[in-house]
Amino acid sequence: MSLFWIVLGQPGGLEEMATSKKLITREEWEKKLSDVKIRKEDMNKLVMDFLVMEGYVEAAEKFRVESGTEPDIDLATITDRMAAKKAVQCGNVEDAIEKVNDFNPEILDTNPQLFFHLQQQRLIELIRDGKVEEALEFAQEELAPRGEENQSFLEELERTVALLAFEDVSNCPVGDLLDMSQRLKTASEVDAAILASQSHEKDPKLPSLLKMLIWAQSQLDEKAAYPRINNLSTATLEDPRDL
C-alpha cells in the first residue's frame, strides 16, 4: 500500500483546486518524489518476486547472488513448475500430470477441477491427433466418472466430446477448445495450483503495481496537471501541457 502513496505524491491540499486544475512543475514534482524514501530491499523483493513467478530461474539465481535478496521459495522448484507448465503448452498432458504428481501428490488429489481440466486437455489432444477410438475410450473410462460426480464437469465433457461430431472442427461451435489458448489456460491453472501448494500467490506483484500507477494517475488527472509517466517501459516523466 505504501507504493500507492508514492505514486500519488501525497497530494495534500489539492482539494481546494477543484474548479481549476493545479499545475505542478517538474521541479516541484521531483522534489516531492525525492522526499519519498523507498527501501532498496523492497524494490529488490519486487524484482525477485517477478523473476520467480515468471520462471526465470537463472536470472533469479544471478539476482540472488548480486543483490543478496533471498527468494521466498526454493529456486529449484521453479524448474519443476516450468517443466509441468511447458508440458501442457506442448500438448504432453500425461507428462505434465506425472510431473505435478512428482512435485506434490496432493495437488491433483485435492483439486478436482484442475484434475478434470487436465484430463479434458488430454481428450482434446487425442481428438486433435485424430485418435477417435482412443478418445472415446478415454472419455468413457476416465472422464465420465468425473462427470457423474459433478454437474458442471459433465457439461464441459459434453462440449468436448461434441468435437468428434464435426467434420471440420476448425469451423464448429466448440472449435475454440482446439485453440492454443485452451492449452495456455490449462497450463496457467497448473502454474497457479503449484504456486498455491507452495503457499504462494498466483500473480506477480509488479503488474498489479503498474495497474495501480495507471489508476492513480488518472485520478490525479482530474485535479492537477503534473509530470506524467506515459511510457511505462521507460518510465520517463513528461512535462505537463500548459493549462
Partner: peptide, 13 residues
C-alpha cells in the same frame, strides 16, 4: 509404483 500413483491420484474410481 509410479504408474499406480499416476493412475490413482485425483481418480476416485
Amino acid at each position: 509404483l509410479r504408474e499406480l500413483k499416476n493412475q490413482i491420484i485425483g481418480n476416485r474410481t
